[in-house]
Design a protein around this nucleic acid. Structure first.
Lengths: 207, 207, 207, 207
DNA sequence: TATGAATGAGCTTTCATTCAT
DNA sequence: TATGAATGAAAGCTCATTCAT
């Protein structure tokens, strides 16, 4: 139910693990969870149907694993958010840099971007609720931590529930995502966009 | 493909039109576009399958029509955004009131809320992309208009592409949606939340 | 749910109806309800899968229809149980004749026999309970009617609940079924067996 | 194929034997032979799949073993049918007592009851035929013995093949089973039912 | 205009069994 | 003795769409 990774899959030949994960990531990113077809994943990965169900408990379990692995890799690359002690300016500057890294990483992997977007979309499917909540674990705390740090050094307002601030940050981040995907590339340079967005975040969230 | 309304359906007995729209709205709101079943809509509406395909070109077309009608009704109820000439304070105050009306209307109709949420979730399905863009027509212009008005009277910054501003507004609005749905009701009064959110919007968007 | 016959199927070309019923009867009789495979029925009948599910709501529905038709045909052949007014001897004699006819009809159609046996076996499957109860309608009343007649003319005891008497009759009838199927045929002539069994019934049920 | 007990299993740690038997009995009683899943038994028993197939030849073999053990235990508890020499009345009285004990034992163990019922239901599955016949070995002889005793002391008729008498006894016994399970409990006291049933048996089987 | 019969591809999941180690 | 990885066949069922009438 909530095992981190099925030992059966972990014990599998890494090459085959990769094949399965690649195929699943591709499928989930391309079609979204609902439209993703286990059959296609199975075909693409070159695994037998029985084996797939031997490794994973089902569609949701496979999705959870893929998302967990990919998001984990993303946040490993980003590393922890550094805590500048020198004041709000340094804080927002560091946040901007960190955010830029995140955007860069996502831009480099459209599949990962699609996965994240699918994950951000609240799911009505009860079967996925549990998975979603589990996936929130690594991501939301990161944002919460960054906000808490900001509040500690006086860079972030404290008069609103932190959950609302988190939601606003996510929403504004998503805004840029939408904006970037709607526009044709190269029209406006991403760095400027990021600056603008973080600037707006600062205005909204500053005390 | 992209006709506004199929004349065939428009010519239909209004009572039957209502039956179909009600059934479709219920299905799409309850299950989402992907999981919605035309068969169920057909059964609930009491229409023949052939007729349904005579009125609409398919699932996407029906969805487009339902969304168009319902969103149109919503914005008709809200009416146009009044243009206060007396300055930024009046502008943001009016916007807050308008926003409150929107939230109230959505809260009053869970089906409509579900439809809007489904519509906000960016879809990867190529068949829906077209529909989504079409649906943006009534909504985004409203926001764009409101922003343009704000810019004219000096209440909204002009140093950023208006599309980005629109995206930010939508994202922050969605943030509150998420926030409201995540929290159990009655914990914090919606009016306060709306005030806080519009306040943050103002901070982000003010010149 | 409980429609007598799906109009869709009734409207079908009688030849195709026959093909489907034959295939289904064969499958259900040969394998029993649980092991019966809709796929096999579909293949044998030469129908598309979609059509089968268009005609019947599912496996249980098809089984209900087949059983209903076949049992109905059987009881139509047998006709009503005549009510002899001349006393217990005539009653039990008539019952014996009627019973002999029933056995003859069942012996002539092993498939029907298998179907009846499967139907007599109380099912644990909740999905079938409803079907079973529906199928009991024509059969049990027949037995109950015959017993009631016997009680009226003093040929059947009245000191026990009639439901128990029915159960005993069914159990003893099943006993002969088992006996007939276990032994190789021709060893003992069925008429004698029937006489013996009805005699035992009379002893058990007489006042 | 038909070895009484696989030595491999007999040599196993008794505690593990118990675990397997318990899990298998539970599964077979709950779901019936057809719907029983070896995988579930294996999980519940905590045995490896390979071991299970090392101990038993397959599903049917496991079922045969479980049924053999449980029925054996049941008849061991009941003990042999005492042979009263004092005449028919004592014989039928003893039989009634014995039958009451049997019903009591079955009522006390729903699992065992379910197993017996599943066993009584004639199976079409060729793979089970063999098992069923094998299981008849301990049960039918018991009944045959009781009947032979009755015939010897003049309590049971001798003008009919004993096999038919056995079938009738089983059928009538099953009748009560059906009757007891159909009715809500407590409506009529089981002791009375047993008296009535044995009375009917006596009428049918007496010379 | 209107109907509903027809369909095949597709879905997720379960299963008993084999076999190399 | 003991293990568990691997598997293919099979299951029941849903669906959007087409098309002859």
């Amino acid at each position: 139910m909530s095992r981190m990774v099925r030992p059966r899959f972990a014990r599998l030949d890494p090459e085959q693990q990769q094949a399965i994960l690649r195929a699943a990531l591709d499928e989930f990113a391309t079609r979204g969870y609902r439209d993703a077809s286990l059959n296609r994943v199975i075909d693409a990965a070159g695994v037998s149907k029985g084996s797939m169900y031997y490794y994973f408990e089902g569609k949701a379990d496979l999705y959870a694993h893929v998302a967990r692995v990919e998001l984990g890799r993303l946040f490993d690359e980003l590393g922890p958010f550094p805590v500048p002690d020198t004041g709000p300016d340094a804080y927002w500057s560091a946040l901007r840099d960190h955010y830029r890294d995140l955007v860069t990483a996502l831009t480099a992997s459209p599949q990962l971007l699609a996965l994240v977007r699918g994950w951000l979309a609240a799911s009505e499917d009860p079967a996925l609720q549990q998975v979603q909540q589990e996936l929130e674990r690594p991501v939301l705390p990161w944002i919460e931590g960054a906000l808490a740090t900001g509040q500690r050094i006086g860079a972030v307002r404290t008069d609103l529930p932190s959950g609302l601030l988190v939601a606003v940050v996510v929403g504004m981040g998503r805004a840029m995502d939408v904006w970037l995907l709607t526009r044709p590339p190269d029209e406006s340079s991403p760095p400027d966009l990021i600056n603008a967005l973080v600037d707006m975040m600062r205005r909204a969230l500053a005390p």
